[in-house]
């Protein structure tokens, strides 16, 4: 945290220098978007809007993962949390018929799964990989058992247009004409960033994830901090699941998360356990999905299998290229022993 630079000017140039690669990539991306928009505005808007929506469950999952790990709990059960939340939110929509209530129920389902993970990881001090696997298996089992075909809902979330903002060319239709969970995801990216890096709670959470004994010695309750974080993170994963059934597809299918929960973990690592970095990762993958759809739609002469494998190839490249240079919270995955 570069807070005490002698003058504002040198702070600003210092910031630019420190982030030169980021700025360069940003400039290239913006340039490419503007160029594409000038060439074909309709397709560009469609692809970018789709990018944002495809990225929504991914960033929600990644936020769940990184909040957990920042507090020292590895969560590989995101896939299961999302799947079960998608299912329960769907059922709520079917039987209650109110999308907002269904959304809340979806988040609560995720939170409940988070509580289960926290119980296994923090209280029982179980191996956290096993704990996450338990959740994944549980979710597949429960949704498979209770799923009945032919349930119909009373619809899904429609885009909400943000008045005059939505009329700005390019930016308007992409950013300001979205359904609610997509807006919520963007807000959450910034909210989680703020909480983690600019509040007491965030400082304490990160301390617990890096060095729980040190946190304990200054009077921070390690167990409580981990419980609260893992439960809140679960609620966010729940939103990601609810997105699939309440905003994306509008109905439930078996195993419909389709690996997004695991991809979210890759995105979390890509983003070096930061919300903004993870958002960049989620947008990258969202873009690949969107591009994939667009390419198949416009019938480019490439085999669809090849195009379909793009996101997965990208996962491998991204993880191979970036993981080596980032560092996980030091105590992530380790149970805390009070008198150990």
């Amino acid at each position: 945290m570069e807070l005490t630079a002698p003058t504002t000017r040198s702070a600003a140039t210092g910031w630019v220098f420190k982030n030169k690669w980021l700025l360069l990539i940003g400039a290239i991306v913006v340039g490419a978007i503007v160029y594409a928009y000038a060439t074909n505005d309709r397709v560009t808007v469609a692809v970018l809007a789709s990018t944002l929506r495809q990225s929504t469950p991914l960033i929600l999952g990644a936020l769940c993962g990184l909040i957990g790990e920042r507090s020292g709990v590895v969560n590989i059960g995101i896939e299961g949390q999302m799947l079960l939340a998608a299912f329960v939110a769907f059922l709520a929509n079917v039987y209650i018929g109110n999308l907002w209530i269904a959304l809340i129920i979806g988040a609560l389902t995720g939170a409940l799964m988070g509580a289960l993970l926290a119980f296994m990881a923090v209280t029982l001090k179980m191996d956290q990989i096993i704990g996450g696997t338990v959740i994944n298996i549980l979710a597949v089992g429960l949704t498979g058992y209770f799923y009945t075909a032919g349930l119909v809902t009373k619809g899904k979330f429609a885009p909400i247009s943000l008045g005059p903002l939505a009329d700005i060319p390019l930016i308007g239709p992409v950013l300001f004409n979205n359904p609610p969970i997509t807006y919520l995801a963007i807000i959450l990216v910034f909210a989680v960033h703020y909480v983690l890096f600019h509040t007491r709670w965030g400082l304490r959470t990160r301390a617990v994830g890096e060095h729980p004994r040190a946190a304990d010695t200054v009077g921070i309750n390690v167990f409580r901090t981990r419980y609260i974080n893992v439960i809140l993170a679960g609620a966010i994963a729940g939103l990601g699941g609810a997105f699939l059934t309440l905003e994306g597809v509008g109905s439930f299918e078996r195993l419909m998360t389709n690996g997004r929960g695991f991809l979210a973990l890759a995105i979390m690592i890509f983003g070096k356990w930061t919300p903004l970095g993870a958002w960049a990762g989620a947008l990258l993958f969202g873009f690949l999905y969107a591009l994939n759809t667009q390419l198949q739609f416009s019938g480019v002469g490439l085999p669809p299998q090849l195009i379909g494998s793009l996101p997965y190839l990208a996962t491998i490249l991204v993880l191979a290229g970036f993981v080596g240079r980032s560092r996980a919270p030091a105590a992530s995955g380790q149970p805390y022993e009070t008198e150990g």
């Binding site: 600019h198 509040t199 007491r200 990160r206 301390a207 060095h211 040190a214 946190a215 200054v218 009077g219």
Partner: peptide, 24 residues
């Protein structure tokens, strides 16, 4: 008992952060 990746000041205030500015 210090968190290596945090600054000196962050380590010092951890758990007893200066009050008066709400959550921030």
């Amino acid at each position: 008992q210090l968190v290596p990746v945090m600054t000196v000041a962050e380590n010092v205030i951890l758990g007893a952060e200066p009050a008066g500015s709400g959550l921030h």
